[in-house]
Amino acid sequence: MSLRFPEVIAAMLMLAATGCHRESRDYRSLALQAQDRTKAFGGNAFHLAQGQRLYAWMNCAGCHSHGGGGMGPPLRDDEWRYGGSLPEIVTTILDGRPNGMPSFRGKITEDQAWQLATYVRSLSARTREDILSGRADEPSNVEPPVLDERKPVRRVTPRQDDASEE
């Protein structure tokens, strides 16, 4: 069976149309119920990326490192002391937990807590590849692109005291 030209064109147009799907970004307060929030935040690249920024800004790495744990428990394993679902992580962030986890209620907004939880969950959960951040924030063992120190701009004419040193 061979496809005719109009059919090929139609098929290609349909393929191209899938490229027009764009994920929506909710900048405003969402004011949703918990189960709707799980859906709205869970698979959303924007909220995940904002959560990753908040993770750095609120110094979560200070205790949890970049997911590997330190003073606080690791976030990369499959062990959740207080539950690993999004609403449970949000509760942990907003209310705090015994032995050190501080409460962030009033320090960040509720939406920000959901963004943060989305990122924290993505550290261990199977998150869709296409919404994960392209670059992690943790220190890398790969050589940095620029190794040499920046040198100060050289003076055009050497000063008197420079000349006397030579």
């Binding site: 970004r25 900048y27 405003r28 307060s29 904002q50 920024r53 960040i108 907004t109 939406d111 920000q112």
Partner: peptide
Amino acid sequence: SDPQAVKPGNNMPKVP
């Protein structure tokens, strides 16, 4: 009162 109305997408959240 609503930073996202003035400059949508910026990092300042709407604080109730």
